[in-house]
């Protein structure tokens, strides 16, 4: 099973990249689950044609009990991708980090992986490693590989570095390892140079270079990924190639 957690600064395009990657895996015939781990709960919207799934935390809030079946909190999107959102409390209240852990343990209780038997699981995680809960997706048993999304912007690189450092801190723990960097271009001056420089210092490869693309925006306005919109587009091909790379490298033996 390939299990990937996608991290990066808030607003850098993690959900876009995760959804397109999910769509690519699905287009390549894989059974995919995407789990949005962000209180904003908008990770999977472009896989669902803009019809969002009820986040787990909303379910708990609304019904005041735990969901009894996966269908209560999951929805199938593009090519059968199973979409789940953890959701979270109203900003400024409560504990979003614990919400993620609670969702994971609920999914475990519902035997998600056993019942659904996915080939690929993608975790789309909030901005930065802000507290223990946001590191949950990289713990043993969840993701085994990490993608860090960054542009050449200073703050994006700063966040990328923080994430890499946090992951390195967990080196002895059998947590997920960083597979590489996805450069999501933002038309920053000397962007490639800056990102390459960071990647070299961190000892990480750049595994994909996503150009700034109006196609992405156009299809997102329609509630779609570019894979669903037009597989033949240059940018779509990049996502498909990235998915192939993961498949060729093989996931963990579970």
């Amino acid at each position: 099973m390939i299990k990937i957690a996608v991290y990066g600064k808030g607003g850098i395009g993690k959900s876009t990249i995760t959804s397109n990657l999910a769509a690519s895996f699905a287009a390549l015939g894989k059974k995919v689950i995407q789990i949005g781990c962000d209180p904003k709960a908008d990770s999977t919207t472009n896989l669902l044609n803009g019809n969002p799934v009820m986040p787990v935390m909303n379910y708990l809030r609304e019904y005041d009990r735990e969901p009894e079946k996966i269908e209560d909190i999951a929805k199938e999107g593009f090519k059968g991708i199973l979409c789940i959102e953890t959701g979270g409390p109203t900003p400024g209240l409560g504990c979003a980090g614990r919400g993620i852990i609670t969702t994971f343990s609920l999914l475990e209780d519902l035997k998600l992986f056993k019942k659904y038997q996915p080939d690929v699981v993608l975790y789309d995680v909030l901005g930065d490693v802000v507290c223990g809960g946001f590191a949950a997706p990289i713990r043993e048993g969840y993701a085994s590989e990490i993608i860090i999304v960054t542009s050449g912007e200073k703050m994006a690189l700063y966040a990328a570095n923080n994430i890499n450092t946090a992951v390195n801190n967990f080196e002895d723990r059998g947590y997920a390892k960083v597979k590489g960097i996805v450069m999501n271009r933002r038309s920053v001056e000397r962007e490639e140079e800056k990102v390459t420089d960071f990647a070299n210092k961190a000892g990480l490869p750049i595994i994909a270079d996503i150009p700034r693309s109006d196609d992405i925006i156009r299809y997102e306005d329609m509630g779609k990924t570019v894979i669903e919109g037009d597989k033949m587009l240059h940018v779509s091909q990049i996502f498909l190639k990235l998915a192939e790379q993961f498949i060729n490298d093989g996931g963990s033996n579970e």
Binding site: A136, R139, R173
Partner: peptide, 10 residues
């Protein structure tokens, strides 16, 4: 500990 998401197993 659970709210701070400590890794008990580790």
């Amino acid at each position: 500990h659970l709210f701070a998401c400590c890794d008990f197993a580790i």
